[in-house]
Amino acid sequence: MIEVLSGGMYTNIQDMGRFGYRSQGVPVSGAMDQFSAGLSNRLLGNAEGDAVLEITHIGPVLRFTQSTVIAITGAGFSPTYNDVEIPLNTRVHVRPGGVLKFGLPGYGIRAYLAVLGGFQSDYIMGSYSFYEGVTPKASLSSGDVLRISEITSAKEKTTASVKIDRTVFERRYLEVLKGPEFDQLSTSFQEALVTTFATVSSKSNRMAYLLEGFHGLTATEIITAPVQPGTVQLMPSGHCAVLMRDAQTTGGYARVLQLTESAINTLAQKRAGDEVCFKLK
């Protein structure tokens, strides 16, 4: 097991998402940066759908009560194990009593911690992903205890690490496709939408990233219709809301663009004040 000594800012358990319940108004959820989350599992030889810990801005402090192997990917935190720095994107062996800390991220904002065999939290409606109203908790707090798989000696012996191209965290362009209401915008609005550098607002979270700086752009509301992670809504206020993994299933704002999967992962690592620009694929 793993004891949570400090919960961090918004630490939660995620897998690749909860599918099959969107018609009941249930968001898909899943890891915000699915590339990094997937990488942490691959380093350990886990299954793609195994649950990982998503760490946001300020990491948790964790104490292991059993031996296992971990891998941390994603944002550039400076994790320490028993106060000794450990590398990212590498398998690390941990023992009972060992304490893992994260520090602050130098680049990106979301890191992923995988453990051998995955986190064994409540599996509800086909997913481990935390979501308020579906799982008992939305994020971890001190005192929580996390169940993990028992280690098998055969797997424990191998080591592995990967080199990550850090420039992916500095990408400013977000690859997009046209959304259902793109053609309803004037040509000048369409042009401005995919050439403006917009600023990530501090009001950004797992549900949506708010982008500001599309001066003069606006769109009328639509009759409430389906949306999905990556849908870019242009609001009458002139801001864009880019829906993320915990997005509602339907929405009433014009769906002007749709991010690619890779662009969602890129945006998920941005922090307030960062600049991004949509780029039509």
């Binding site: 099959g20 009759i223 219709a225 389906p226 339907t250």
Partner: peptide, 14 residues
Amino acid sequence: IVDVVPAYHSLAVF
């Protein structure tokens, strides 16, 4: 099919 999401005048099929 993974999900079919109906709304007022449209539906999304995933």
